[in-house]
Design a protein around this nucleic acid. Structure first.
Ligand code: FES
Ligand code: FES
Lengths: 145, 145
DNA sequence: ATGATAAAAGACAAAAATATCTTTTATTGT
DNA sequence: ACAATAAAAGATATTTTTGTCTTTTATCAT
């Protein structure tokens, strides 16, 4: 078990890679993305399709087509990607799996778990899709391996 | 997606319930546990079997048998339960799903994700299995619904 | 207009997580 | 010893997640 589903992990890695390439002025095809984030190509295609339907990522078909972000999209929070793929369980769900998290009828972990959830929420809302573009170009971060 | 697997959520809820009953001096059967934490009975049986094999929970067969904790076990951290069920991915894994988390070759989320992971680790290590016994007896917490 | 390109959509397949059922083994009280 | 109880173990079933393959649709360059 990890914090995010495998699908969501691929989605975030792909989004960071496409953001970097958009910053450099390129659109990117599935093949290139899959290669650079080390993901199964057809599976990633499905994931990006979903992000595209949800309006998180932009795409055009045909020659010189591919996935990309415009300036506005680059400023959207990573939380949008997570919500599109994993829903909002991670932002609102109970740590012990109760059907809903409640202040008035809390599970034992509630107080401590709330802090964890808040930190995750903070991380995902303060991290924009384009935040790491320069770092990625400089090679400071990795997205594969 | 949640932080813990469904299996692990049931495990933690069950452990808290059994701890409370142990504190009150009782052993508990699967049926009673499943009823109080709202989990599928045969599935929970499998989960507790695994915890028993791993030495996290104690059990005896036969009449008046059931699951229970001794004083020493009540002081073990909840982390032991999580590790037994979900492994240590949550404590050490990369937030973007890279095969391992590394300081020298980090993913973009590494710095922020480390904080989240550390808080989860802290929560699970400072929370003992018996920590909520009095609160549970007083009805301050819920484990079902 | 036409052919080439690349994503979208749909159908399908494999693997893992979740859940159930049946049989066996250990313990207890009589 | 024996019957009753309750967990352990093993086999099986279902659902969800992960992954693949094929066909269709949109866009571009000529
Ligand atoms: S009730 Fe469980 S985390 Fe809030
Ligand atoms: S490398 Fe991704 S969290 Fe450390």
């Amino acid at each position: 078990m990890a914090i995010f589903s495998k699908t969501c992990e691929y989605a975030m890695r792909a989004v960071f890679y496409v953001a970097q390439r958009s910053h450099e002025g390129y659109k990117v095809g599935i093949k290139e993305i899959a290669g650079h984030i080390n993901s199964p190509e057809p599976f990633l295609a499905k994931i990006l399709q979903q992000l595209s339907r949800d309006g998180v990522i932009l795409s055009t078909k045909g020659p010189n087509g591919g996935f990309y972000f415009d300036a506005a999209s680059l400023n959207r929070p990573l939380a949008d990607v997570v919500t599109a793929i994993d829903g909002d369980d991670i932002f609102t769900g109970c740590g012990l799996g109760l059907t809903y998290c409640s202040e008035s009828n809390p599970c034992p972990l509630h107080e401590e778990f709330k802090k964890v959830r808040n930190q995750i929420t903070h991380m995902l809302h303060t991290t924009t899709i384009g935040k790491f573009n320069l770092g990625l170009i400089k090679g400071k971060f990795t997205l594969n391996k």
